[in-house]
C-alpha cells in the first residue's frame, strides 16, 4: 500500500454490510477517498445513503466489514475496542446534532471530560478548558449548566469539548440541525474560523445551504461515493450573519415608523 502520510484521512474500498436474518444491507459499498489536512468536507446524500454509517466508521465508533481506513497515518480499521477508544479520545473531535452534553456538569466540566480520559492532570485540564471556552465565546459562562444555556451556546460548549485534545479531525454530524438559521450560521462561522486555523473538518448534513460553507462536498448514494463537488466560492458565515442582521434591523424599522 502506498504511504498516506500526506493525507489525514485515507479510505480504501470501505464496506459495511449489515445482516438482518438472511438479508444483507450494503450500507457502504466500496467507498474510497483521501482528505488532506486543512480540508473542509461536507458529506451529503439522501436518507439511507450511508451518511451515518460512514460517520460511525470515520469516528472509530464502528469497524468496517472490509476495506481500510488510515487516520493520521495509522491504520485504524482493524483496531480493537480499547485502541479505538484511544483514537476517539486523541484524534477525533465529535460534534453532535443534539450536543450530547452531560446535564449535571457545568460547561467547564463538560469540556474537561475528554481530557480526564486522556489522563491529563487537573490543573492543566482546567486551564485548557477555560482557554477553549473563551475561544468559542463563552468565557463568561464557564460555570453554567447545559439547561442554563441556549442551543447555540450548548453547541459552542460541544465544539470546545471536541477541540480540547487537539484532534486530527472534527467530525460534525448535522451540527446545525437543532438550531435556528441565525444560530446555525454562527456555528458554521466557528467551523470556518477553525478551518482557517488549519483544522480538518468533516460535516455531515442534508442541507445544501449548510454544505455550501465547506470547500468540497462528497455526494453519497446507495452506499457509494458518487460525486466529489468542489465549491469554488464557499459561503461565508460572517457575511451571511451580517446580511441577516441588516435584514432584521430593516424589518424592525419598517414595523415601527416614528
Amino acid at each position: 500500500m502506498v504511504s498516506h502520510n500526506h493525507h489525514i484521512i485515507s479510505v480504501r474500498e470501505l464496506q459495511k454490510i449489515y445482516r438482518i436474518d438472511r438479508i444483507e444491507v450494503r450500507a457502504l459499498n466500496g467507498v474510497s477517498f483521501d482528505i488532506v489536512p486543512g480540508e473542509f468536507v461536507a458529506i451529503m446524500g439522501p436518507s439511507g445513503s450511508g451518511k451515518t454509517t460512514l460517520t460511525n466508521l470515520l469516528g472509530c465508533l464502528d469497524t468496517p466489514t472490509s476495506g481500510q481506513y488510515f487516520l493520521d497515518g495509522e491504520e485504524v480499521s482493524k483496531l480493537k475496542e480499547n485502541q479505538l477508544a484511544d483514537i476517539r479520545n486523541r484524534k477525533i473531535g465529535f460534534v453532535f446534532q443534539n450536543f450530547h452534553l452531560l446535564p449535571r456538569l457545568s460547561a467547564l466540566q463538560n469540556v474537561e471530560l475528554p481530557m480526564i480520559y486522556a489522563g491529563i492532570p487537573r490543573h492543566k485540564r482546567h486551564h485548557r478548558a477555560v482557554e477553549l471556552l473563551k475561544m468559542v465565546g463563552l468565557g463568561s459562562r464557564i460555570h453554567h449548566r447545559p439547561n442554563q444555556l441556549s442551543g447555540g451556546q450548548n453547541q459552542r460548549v460541544a465544539i470546545a469539548r471536541a477541540l480540547v485534545n487537539d484532534p486530527a479531525i472534527i467530525l460534525a454530524d448535522e451540527p446545525t440541525g437543532n438550531l435556528d438559521s441565525l444560530t446555525g450560521e454562527e456555528i458554521m462561522g466557528i467551523f470556518q474560523q477553525l478551518n482557517r486555523m488549519g483544522k480538518t473538518i468533516l460535516l455531515i448534513t442534508h442541507e445544501r445551504d449548510i454544505a455550501l460553507h465547506a470547500k468540497c462536498i462528497f455526494h453519497l448514494r446507495d452506499g457509494k461515493l458518487v460525486r466529489i463537488e468542489e465549491v469554488p466560492n464557499p459561503l461565508n458565515a460572517e457575511t451571511i450573519i451580517a446580511e441577516i442582521q441588516a435584514q432584521k434591523k430593516k424589518e424592525k424599522e419598517d414595523h415601527e415608523p416614528q
Binding site: N82, R88, R90, F94, H100, A118
Partner: peptide, 16 residues
C-alpha cells in the same frame, strides 16, 4: 445510557 454512550464516544474505555 446516553451518558455512557457519550463517555465512550469521547474516549472512555469499557474498563473506565
Amino acid at each position: 445510557t446516553r451518558e455512557i454512550g457519550l463517555r465512550k464516544a469521547i474516549g472512555a474505555k469499557p474498563r473506565d
